[in-house]
Amino acid sequence: MSASQLWEVFVRSGSGLAHKHVGSLHAADATMALQNARDVYTRRHEGASLWVVRATDIVASQPEDAGSLFAAADGKPYRDPTHYVVPDGVKHL
């Protein structure tokens, strides 16, 4: 398939869960990408819903921007829930 493009595949494994990136594949268009995603990534009951996105449509942060984007979170422990006391009896938090 000379005209094939790279697609990123997201699978939602159950109701109430978020779509999760599982990998990528090659396909000529959206229809083929969805069918290929079904065949490559959901053969063992992994999926309840599929998303495919052209890899070129994903806007990614650049490694050289990591400092300005993420360093600001350093040294601010008050943003973490570490100091929050979980009340007794709360099982799912």
């Binding site: 094939s4 594949l25 090659h26 069918q35 290929n36 065949d39 490559v40 053969r43």
Partner: peptide, 12 residues
């Protein structure tokens, strides 16, 4: 198969 994806699909 002609591609990895098609190989898996036809095997399915």
């Amino acid at each position: 198969g002609p591609s990895l994806e098609e190989d898996l699909a036809s095997t399915n």
